[in-house]
Write a protein that binds this DNA or RNA. Structure first.
Length: 351
DNA sequence: CAGGCGTGGGT
DNA sequence: TACCCAAGCCT
């Protein structure tokens, strides 16, 4: 196959034919709403398009504008974000909305965007390019993979990041890219998501196949190389399902920062390397009661450790213990992170 | 720079 | 099953 240098024009032509129709994507020629683009970018951080789709629509229906989001209480935002993970995103999203609303709108350049909470190098470039057509190339995992293959970069990530960013940025020297920075960025995303995939890339369909060094060398599927991961330790916790006479469940709010910061949970012990014998666990219960251990365990995988939890149940008529609040079972499940839903599911299975 | 920080789907 | 992976950010 004759060599043909990868060009922005070729990618844009491919994008015009094969672009994905996504909820946060304005139709060609349609006005672009910075709020919607920013929201989608934050939701999509380390989160799949499939997972974001329905949550994006729901979030937008509840908070239709940056002003509406800014005016909301944290408790509402937390509930709406529950289950999406990486909860610092929701905290930063809320803080960012308040800053933007106070300023009267979003900055249109990467420097201004980067100064906002939860907006780093990637998201600043993405919003600037997609919402404002600033001549920048956002570099996410897709773009790193495409660049690593295009130029057969064998240096493992993350060491190769700077070089891959420079290779991506070089495309903005082309007038075709400068004319449509937002579409160029999204073309790179779509190429990475649909053809230049992590395994089994569909090189035969790629608009850049004739200029791809990794394809020429037969190593496309092996790139980008990555540093080895560390093993995840197993940790243990014990949690408490307290219900009132109407079957409502006791929840409490976690500290504002750190793991699951600011989210609701079932009361429990800290999570540690050793299992919790009953005598050590019960002092962590929200109150003294005839706690009974439910059969089985609930497991949940976090990014950096695996968690195994046991569950104790008891009934407590009257008001909630200090620091807690009653929730109907369905509302509780909707308001808590997924790790806590595992416990609710375990309780639902129990006899 | 390395590590903390979630979750669900694919293989 | 046990990984790997996804439109990263912050410290």
């Amino acid at each position: 196959m004759p060599y043909r240098a990868p060009s922005a024009a070729d990618l844009l032509a491919w994008y015009d034919r094969h672009r994905r129709d996504l909820p946060w994507r304005a139709a060609p020629g349609q006005a672009r709403d910075p709020y919607r683009i920013w929201l989608s970018e934050v939701m999509l951080q380390q989160t799949t398009v499939a997972a974001v789709g329905p949550r994006y629509a729901r979030f937008l229906a509840r908070f239709p504008s940056v002003e509406a989001l800014a005016a909301a209480d944290w408790e509402e935002v937390a509930e709406e974000w529950a289950g999406l993970g990486y909860y610092a995103r929701a905290r930063n999203l809320h803080a960012c909305a308040r800053a933007v609303a106070a300023a009267g709108g979003f900055p249109s350049d990467t420097a201004g965007l980067s100064a906002l909470p939860g907006i780093g190098r990637y998201t600043a470039a993405a919003v600037a390019a997609i919402a404002f057509d600033a001549p920048v190339v956002p570099v996410d995992g897709n773009v790193e993979r495409v660049m690593a293959r295009l130029h057969a970069v064998e240096t493992p990530l993350p060491a190769a990041k700077a070089r891959l960013s420079a290779l991506a940025a070089a495309f903005m020297a082309e007038p075709a890219a400068r004319a449509r920075p937002g579409d160029f960025a999204q073309g790179l995303f779509d190429l990475g998501a649909t053809l230049c995939t992590p395994r089994r890339p569909a090189c035969a369909l790629c608009p850049w196949q004739a200029g791809c060094a990794a394809r020429a060398a037969g190593i496309a599927a092996d790139l980008p190389r990555k540093a080895a991961r560390r093993a995840r330790p197993l940790r243990h916790g014990a949690h408490f399902l307290l219900t009132d006479e109407e079957g409502r469940i006791l929840l409490r709010r976690r500290p504002a920062r750190g793991l699951l910061g600011g989210m609701l949970e079932l009361p429990g012990t800290p999570w540690r390397d050793e299992p919790w014998p009953e005598a050590e666990a019960l002092p962590h219960a929200p109150l003294a009661a005839p706690w009974r251990r439910l059969p089985g365990v609930a497991r949940h995988g976090f990014t950096h450790f695996e968690l195994e939890m046991v569950l104790y149940a008891a009934r407590h008529p009257g008001g909630p213990p200090p620091g807690g609040e009653w929730r109907e079972p369905a509302a509780a499940a909707a308001a808590v992170p997924s790790v806590m839903r595992r416990l609710l599911a375990l309780a639902a299975e129990a006899p």
